[in-house]
Structures are given as C-alpha cells and as structure tokens.
Design a protein around this nucleic acid. Structure first.
Lengths: 347, 347
DNA sequence: CAAGAACTGATAGGCGTATGTCAGTTTGTG
DNA sequence: CACAAACTGACATACGCCTATCAGTTCTTG
C-alpha cells in the first residue's frame, strides 16, 4: 500500500503556511465562518489554487458528525413499479447505514394535491433531504417551497414538478420515452397499415401525458399508415385495462398495435391472449418487472420501455447527499436513461 | 441537522462493552491482527451481530491513511470507444482526488499476449488495483495471477479473461448483445426475405466472437427467411470496413441488413450512402459516440447496441475500492447493461 | 508447578477536518 | 490618540477507527 505521505496530500495546514496565515483563518474562509480581511481571504484563495487543495471529504464528514436523514414520499398502494422503487430505497438505505445516512419512507395519496402537500408539510423541518414523487400542482409547489426554505434539500422522483423549488429531478424524459415507444412500434410493424390503441393510467398524470405526446408526435410525423385510436384511461388497474383492451380488439378489426403508457400490463396481456390475435398485434409496455419480464420471454410483449428503480433510488440519495455537503454531482451518473428491453437484453 | 449521538451510532467501544472485552480485542478480531481465544472471538462476533455494528467506512479509511492507486491498462491507439473510455477514466479519477484515489492509464498493445503480459508484469506490485482490457490467453492469465498474488486487486474491463484470477468483470454479456442485435434487426425487417452481412473487427477477439455467436443463434432459430453471409473482418478500421461493406452491397442484390460487430461504423455508413441503398438496408451497429449518434439521427444507422463507458469507468473504480477495503459491492449498480439506442432515446 | 507461550487490557498518538474559546493584534472612527 | 470594533492566532477537543506498545493475565507443556 502506498501511504498518503508519499503522495503528499495537501492539508489546510499547508494552505495556511503558504498563505502566511493560521489554520483558523483558512477555516474561516473555507466555511465562511466569520469575516476575514479581504487581503487575507485573497491570499488563502490563492494558496488553495496554487496548491490545488482539495478538502478531504472523508475527514470532513467524520468531523462534521453529520448523519443525513432523508424522507421519501411515495404513493400509498402504488403499482408494481412503485413497490419496486420502495424496495430499492429500503435496500440502499440499509447499505448506507455504514455511511451515516438513514431514510424513511412516507406513503401518501400523491394524486390528491391536498393530501400530498399536507404530508410534505408534516415532514418539513424534520429531515435533511426529501425526495418525492411529485404532482404538478400549485399547492404542491408551495409545500416544496416550504420544505426548501426550512433548509432541507428537495428532489423530485419519477414524476417532476417543474416550477417548484426542487433542486433536481431524478427520472426520465417522458416525452422521449413516448417517442421511443412509437419508433419501435412503427419499425416493428414494418409498413403494415392499421390502428394503434393507447391505454394510459390517466392523462392527468404529467408523465403519462408527456409519453402520449411524444408517441403521437412520432406516429403522426413518420408513420402515415398508422392511425391512433383515442386514449383510454385504465387508471393503472389491470382489470380495467383488460376490459379496455378487450373492447378495442373486438371493435377494431385492423388493430395492429397497442401502447400501454402506464401500469396494468397484465390485464392487457390477458385480453390479447384470449382474443387469439396476440401474435398479430405489436404490444409495447412500460417498466420492467416480473410480469413484463415473463411477457417479453413469452412473446406476449414485444418491447418494454423502462426506467431503473434501483438507479433512481441510489441516484436520489447520492444527489441529496451531494447537495447536503455542497459537493458536485456527476451529471452523467445521475442521468436516468430511457431503457429499451427486448427478450434478449434482460438483466 | 440531526447529530449522530441522537442516532446512537454503534462504535467498537459499544461492541467491546457488550462482549465484555477491550476495544483492542475487538480490533484484533475485526482486522485479524493477532490470535484471539475462540471464546472471546465468538463473543465479539455475537456482539457485532446483536448490535448490528457496521464499521464506519469513512473513519476507517481516514485512519488507515490509505490512498488507493489504480492502474488502467488500455489498448494503445484504440478506437473511439476506447478513447471515450480513457476520457471517462481520467475524468472520474480527477473527481476522486478528494477521496484519496488516483488512477494512472497505461497504454499497450493488448492484442499481443506478450506485450500485454509484459505490461502487466511491469505494473505488478506498484498499485493497489489494476483494471485491464483483457485478452483471453494463457500468458495473460499468468500475468494476472502474478499481480493478484502480489496483493493487488484485478478486474477485467470490457473484455474478459474468464479463467483468470480477476475478481470481477466490468462489461457486458456480449452474447446477449449479439442476440439483441439480431432480434431488432429481424423485427425491423418484419418478414422480409434476404441476406445479412456481418462485419467484425476480428473473430479472434472474444467479445466479437461472442456477439457473432449470439447473433447467429437468434437469426437461425427465429428468422428463417434471413441468411447470414460469412463474417468479414474489418479490423475495426473504417477504410477497410468501407471496402468490405461496399463489396457486399455490390455483390448481394438481396442484402437486407448489416450488423457491424466492432468499430469502423463510419466506413460502412459511407458505403451504404454511396450505394444509394441505405434506406432499404437495416443497419445495426455498436457503441454510442458522435458518429453513431449522428447516424441514428440521420437514419444512416437504425439501432445502436451499446455499453456506457462512463458507467464502466466508475464501476471499475468502485469495485476496486470496495475490494481494497473489503466492503460489499452493490451487484445491481455494478452490472453493465446492454443498452439499445434508437434516434429517440439518445442521452 | 514452573517456565514459557499465548493471549488480553489500557493507553497513547495519529489521520484531516470542524468548531469553539480567548487572548492578542490590527483597523477604523471620532 | 484613544477606544471600540474587527480581525487573527494558538490551542483544545472531538469524530471513529487504526496501529503499536507494554505490562499483566491466562493457558500449555514438559
């Protein structure tokens, strides 16, 4: 092992010496703890640059004795994806116990602006960071503002609230996800002519609306032989989605594709299979889980567009931690990608 | 901020007290520093479990005064992907400077077993961890063994050497990548009948051979209307690949698809475009970079199968660090996925 | 059962930073 | 020029763990 002394690690003492001041003064500059005469402050800054001083993050966190408490606000009784997300958050929180981080999960009705904002306010002031699956609503923005102004970091997760005081959004670009679905569905159909059915949870959900927008855009622009049926809202519910899909299949003789924007995929698979037209209808769904995974292998689903809940959980925590100790975040690492899965590249 | 004392962080002192021994003994057990009577060792283990003690990794690294030195062994004069990988390694190394980690890059001819193993031996003993783009060859395995037996951790990067003493492989499953390419190409062709041209860097490269295997497997099993032309070796060179592609296009009137297993994609694009048959031939390539990115947007390439060099660089460093301080690695986080890109889900 | 071997406890000092105190020095102001 | 205000330096303590030392205790073994 090579020891640090051999590497000549630069410490605040070196900076102090070089700047001709005491370590206390360097500390005052570094942590803006008290006013320092401009001349000395400048010297310190210069010494820092000259020596390329980088504070030791390990020592800093140890000394600061900070243990970060984060709160994740998730939908109560959510779909499979949300349950997977919760599992990932718990598992990563356990892992981070050795790094002085703890995370609680608060379940609430995120579709009700009043309930969500009440939950947010109830949490305000008690945590160093809050991650929430947001609803784009004035009340919610207000609650986020409240948390932020009480000194906590806020990030939105999966679903964003663009105008709000959140410092980061951990999630995918949903319009791009919709466009991706359209391109794959269109290319898989390879020039066939016909109708495409679309099922969403609810177009009142920002992410569903955005996916629909992206999907419709690409189909209109690039696949003139395909036409879209009006969106049906299945509320992410398998039974309801099954009925909607069955209705579509029965009504439209030239149905060649289905795009499920939200959850409830198992219902649509059932409708397809019991209709006997499963092989003729290209089906694109969202999110990778036990159901869609098996469906891909069976051929019941042709393509899955997904976001990785594990990545999102870890990313949210890393971003919160980084913001809490004012460190830089690695943009490329924290970017959540629009994943495409076929039967062959499953994890 | 919530202080640690409120959280009741468990320290070795708590463990010692609970086990009825001194902290020195706990330390002896934890770091197997000297022999401890079995009875006491068992008590300590029990106390650790009972209290769910987790050593503070920050404090440990600080005290140990370790600064990890890693070496990355990459191909000299590599293709775009390898250059991107090098850039990512440098950039992440800079980022980790504040966490007592440094990384050097050593360029060598990784296709020559003698040269590669000589480079590995020259590096042996000087680093805490080595990551290399491996060649699957006895000489190389021997060199890896040598490094490992001198106390350094070894991981393979992008290309594996399965029998060797590396503790981890950071890269994709190449057979799965090949299968994925075949499925997308097959589905994009939507039942069209014809020939598929395959260009590889060299089938002597393990990753290329594996991709080819996976690709051929799926085409044979699922796309009876498609037949494969013999693999042409372009040595990852754009000019040579262009000539090979141009030849194929001219010779085979019913060429409906091209799969480029390695680099040199720009050459193939040129051949396709100057032939005027670009729109009729589905083209699947590997790795996302400026060239393939533009080609996707242009429509010159239909699908790109990729691995993320940034993820690989960060993952290699995290794995090396984790192994150096005997910490657990997060499997899901370190798994490198076979990414699929179309024009709509580009980062 | 004595002598040596094997083990254990107490303690000190260190890693690089944070935070606070207090006496001492410089600066600005009237 | 005096006096308060603003600034600075030196030092102490803490964070949790690592490493080493040394005296003291408990085991082996002949």
């Amino acid at each position: 092992m090579i020891q640090a002394r051999l590497m000549g690690r630069v410490t605040i003492e070196d900076v102090a010496e070089r700047a001709g001041v005491s370590v206390a003064t360097v500390d005052r500059v570094l942590n803006s703890r008290a006013t320092v005469r401009p001349r000395n402050a400048a010297r310190v800054e210069a010494a820092i640059r000259a020596l390329n001083y980088q504070p030791d993050r390990l020592a800093a966190r140890l000394a600061r004795q900070r243990s970060y408490r984060f709160c994740f606000v998730l939908p109560r009784g959510g779909n499979i994806f949300m349950r997977d997300l919760a599992t990932e958050i718990e598992s990563h929180a356990r892992h981070l116990a050795g790094e002085r981080v703890s995370a609680d999960i608060l379940y609430t009705d995120i579709f009700d602006p009043e309930a969500l904002s009440a939950s947010l306010l109830s949490v305000s002031g008690k945590y160093d960071g809050v991650a929430l699956v947001a609803l784009d609503h004035p009340r919610v923005r207000e609650a986020i503002q409240h948390i932020a102004s009480h000194g906590a970091e806020v990030v939105t997760l999966v679903s964003d609230a663009p105008g709000a005081a959140r410092s980061h959004f951990v999630g995918i670009e949903n319009a791009a996800a919709g466009r991706t679905a359209a391109t794959l569905l269109g290319r898989y159909l390879g020039g066939r002519r016909g109708k495409i059915g679309i099922i969403a949870g609810s177009l009142a959900l920002r992410d569903h609306a955005e996916r629909h927008f992206g999907f419709a855009q690409v189909i209109a622009a690039e696949y003139r032989d395909l036409s879209l049926l009006p969106v049906q809202e299945g509320r992410d519910n398998p039974e309801r989605s099954m009925e909607l899909a069955a209705g579509m299949i029965a009504r439209e003789g030239d149905l060649v594709g289905i795009y499920n924007i939200g959850a409830g995929t198992e219902g649509i698979i059932e409708a397809l299979q019991s209709s006997g037209r499963s092989r003729d209808i290209v089906f694109v769904a969202h999110e990778l889980n036990e159901i869609t995974r098996h469906a891909l292998l069976d051929g019941a689903v042709d393509v899955v567009i997904a976001q990785d809940p594990g990545h999102e959980a870890r990313s949210a925590m890393r971003v919160l931690m980084a913001r809490c100790d004012k460190a830089a975040i690695i943009a490329a690492q924290e970017r959540i990608s629009v994943d495409i899965f076929v039967k062959d590249n499953l994890p």
